[in-house]
């Protein structure tokens, strides 16, 4: 057995693989949203991490203050955060499209600081616990490892949502408008498509994905005002590795890097926090447009 050869018990390896897949699912969902937003708005959405955190917090608030459980929250919280995002787009981001990427990055970075600051002021820096929904508690013994049900659920949902978004963009009529809008929005509008509205909805979709990731993450990590800050740095590295603007690239790279991180944790734990950035540096040197990016 190869596992024995490397002196690593298979349980540890598979356990880390699963953990890697979960992180990878989060990376995939977040970088997919970032890629969508970048394609259509030409803005690098630095507020993505803060909006992910908001997803987790809104879900926690719905439960704590209104008693709304996880399942409706899974739809409701992303919807609320998406509406908030669309208001930001209409009132602020939309003024920057004709300027350099840098301005959008600065604005969204500022927004991220404000949003995270506001939640820190209200809730402090201690994390809150979001209980795993009843039906997904416990786990399944697969013989070679113990699979926590909720974690399996997260991976499945993330994969379905990623595939759904990909299908929507590549195979539907509205998706074809989205692709065309990424390439030449002016002409698309001259064909009769309301491009400004489409841009707002795209931002809403990207933000909604971030918030959904937050809702899914809430029972695994603690709900914490800075949870997005830690996440977003890794996700940006993922996006750089995958290549900005490629949906499939975002999904595949996200999952892959999650798994790579997991394996690194088994074989060389010291590097597990940095492996993504090492890969990013290598990709930038050898293929600056990213693995899936076009020149």
């Amino acid at each position: 057995m190869i596992f024995d050869l490397l002196g690593v018990p298979p349980q540890a390896l598979l356990g880390q693989l699963l953990l890697g897949l979960i992180n990878g699912s989060f990376y995939a969902l977040l970088s997919l949203g970032l890629a969508l937003i970048f394609g259509m708005l030409n803005i690098i959405n630095f507020a993505h991490g803060a909006l992910y955190m908001m997803g987790a917090f809104v879900s926690w608030m719905l439960l704590t203050y209104l008693g709304i459980p996880f399942w409706p929250s899974l739809i409701l919280a992303p919807l609320i955060v998406a509406l908030f995002g669309m208001a930001l787009e209409r009132t602020m981001l939309s003024k920057l499209y004709h300027l350099d990427h840098l301005y959008g990055l600065l604005l969204t970075f500022g927004l991220a600081l404000i949003i995270e600051g506001a939640f820190r002021t209200m809730y402090g820096v201690s994390g809150r616990v979001y209980p795993i929904p009843e039906i997904l508690r416990g786990g399944t013994n697969l013989g070679f490892m113990f699979l926590p049900n909720y974690r399996a659920f997260v991976v499945v949902v993330a994969l379905f949502v990623c595939l759904g978004v990909w299908f929507f963009i590549e195979r539907t009529r509205i998706g074809s408008y989205l692709r065309a809008g990424t390439e030449n929005p002016e002409l698309l509008q001259a064909f009769g498509i309301n491009v400004p509205r489409m841009i707002t909805l795209t931002y809403g979709l990207g933000v909604g994905l971030a918030a959904l990731t937050g809702v899914l993450a809430a029972p695994i990590y603690q709900v914490h005002p800075l949870m997005g800050f830690h996440m977003i740095i890794v996700v940006f590295a993922v996006v750089v590795i995958g290549g900005l603007g490629s949906m499939l690239g975002a999904i595949v790279t996200g999952l892959l890097l999650g798994v790579v991180e997991g394996f690194t944790r088994v074989f060389y734990p010291e590097a597990s926090a940095t492996v993504v950035f090492i890969i990013m540096a290598i990709v930038l040197l050898l293929r600056p447009q990213g693995l899936f990016g076009k020149r």
Partner: peptide, 14 residues
């Protein structure tokens, strides 16, 4: 549009 086939281009405008 470069990201689409000829037919997708043809079918694009609503």
């Amino acid at each position: 549009y470069a990201s689409m086939t000829a037919e997708e281009n043809l079918l694009l405008p609503p």
